[in-house]
Simulated scan of single mutants.
Amino acid sequence: MKVYVSNYLSKSISIIDYETLTLEKEIKLDDNIYPHHFCIDKEKSKMYLPSSSNGILYVLDMKEEKIIDSSSIGGSLTQIAMFEEEVFIANEDSNSIYFMNKNTLDPIGIICVDDMPHGFCFDLPRKKLYVPCMDSITCIDIINKVIESKIDINFKAWHVQLDKYKSEIYVSTLDGKVVIIDEDTLVTKRVFDEFLLPVQISFNYKDKKVYVADLGYKNIKILDYSLGKYVGNIDIDGIPQGLEISPDEEKLFISDTQKNSVKVYDTSTNKLIKEIKVEKEPTTIICM
C-alpha cells in the first residue's frame, strides 16, 4: 500500500510507503501543472490531475513517471473522481461538472450547477453525485447524467463527505460551519459552529469519530460520531488541509501546508506517530 500526496507549489507528487512511513519518491510534473486534487486508476497505473492554473486535465503514467495525455477543459478545475470508465471534474469558473471517458479523454457531457462547485462526493450504491455550491446542494444521477434534485441553502458550501452508514452528508462551509444534511430529503439536520475555516472531512467508524481539518484554527476538530457533538481537537503545529484515514482506520494522515509535511496520527490516542517531509504545499492525500 502507498500514500500519494499532491504538492501544489512544487508541482510534484510524493509517494510514501505505508508500512515504513518513509518517503519513497517524488515525481516531478511539468512546470505548468499545479496539482491540487487527483484520482488514481491503480489497475492501469494512471493518475488524473486537473490543473487549476490552466484548465487542463493531465494523465500521468505512474510507472514511467511522465505525462502521457491531456485535455483542455478550461476554467478553474478543482476536484476529480472516477466512476467506472468515466472521470468527473468540478469547474469553479464555468459552474459545472464535466464528465469524460477516462481512457480516451473524450468529452461525454457537462452539467451546469450553481456558483463555485469546489468539491463533491459520490454515493456509488445509489449512483448519485452530490455537489456543494455557494447557495445550494445539487444531487446528480451519474448514470443518466441529469440533476435529480437540488436545495437552496443559507451557507457557503465548500467540501462534502458522505456518511456511508447513516445516509447523511457532512458539508464544510466557507462561513465556518459543518452542516449535516439528510441524503434522502436534503434537509439540514444539524449545524456545528465550532469552526473557522473547515476543509476536508474524514470518518473513523471504528472509534466513532469524525475528523475535520480547520484551516482557520490550524487544527483538526473531532466530532463524536455517535453523540453528534464536538469533543475536542488535534493541534498539529501547522496548517492542515488534506485528510485521509487508513483502510484499517488506525492512522490519520494530514497534509500540513505550512511545514510542507504529512503528519501521521494514531487514531486511538490522537498522538503523532511520524512527520514525513514532502515538497511545497501538500494538499490532497490518497491511501491505496
Rank of each mutant, 00 (worst) to 15 (best):
K102N: 03
N54K: 09
V3Y: 02
I254Y: 03
S70F: 10
S71H: 06
Q200C: 09
N95V: 03
P240N: 07
E275S: 15
K271I: 07
L252Q: 10
I273A: 01
E65W: 05
E244C: 15
I180Y: 03
E85K: 15
S261E: 14
P198M: 14
I143E: 13
S72V: 12
K42F: 09
E43K: 15
C112G: 08
C133V: 03
V264C: 05
P50A: 04
S45A: 11
Y8R: 14
E275M: 07
K2F: 11
I108A: 04
L29I: 12
D184Q: 13
K63M: 14
K280E: 14
L49G: 01
D114R: 15
F253G: 04
V146F: 00
L162T: 07
L227R: 14
L174E: 08
K218F: 02
L215H: 06
E24T: 09
M134S: 06
Y48M: 01
Y225A: 10
N103G: 03
S51F: 11
C112E: 12
P35K: 07
F253P: 05
T188C: 10
Y4A: 03
P117W: 11
S72P: 04
E85W: 05
V178A: 06
L129E: 04
C112S: 09
F88C: 01
P240V: 13
T78H: 14
L272Y: 03
V146Y: 00
I220L: 15
K166D: 10
D266S: 11
G238C: 09
K102V: 09
F155A: 09
E84V: 08
L162A: 05
L196G: 01
L215R: 08
Q200I: 08
I151A: 09
G242W: 10
K150D: 00
N154Q: 14
I234M: 12
I15Q: 14
Y98Q: 05
T20H: 05
K44P: 00
N270Q: 11
P35W: 09
S136D: 07
I16R: 06
E249P: 04
L186D: 04
I147D: 02
F155N: 08
N154K: 14
C287T: 03
D256T: 08
E281M: 09
K218D: 07
R126K: 15
V264G: 08
I110D: 05
F203Q: 05
L162V: 14
D135Q: 12
K166N: 14
D61E: 08
F155T: 08
D141G: 01
G176R: 05
G232P: 11
D93F: 09
K11Y: 01
D266N: 15
Q79W: 08
S76R: 10
P50S: 07
W158M: 10
D106H: 12
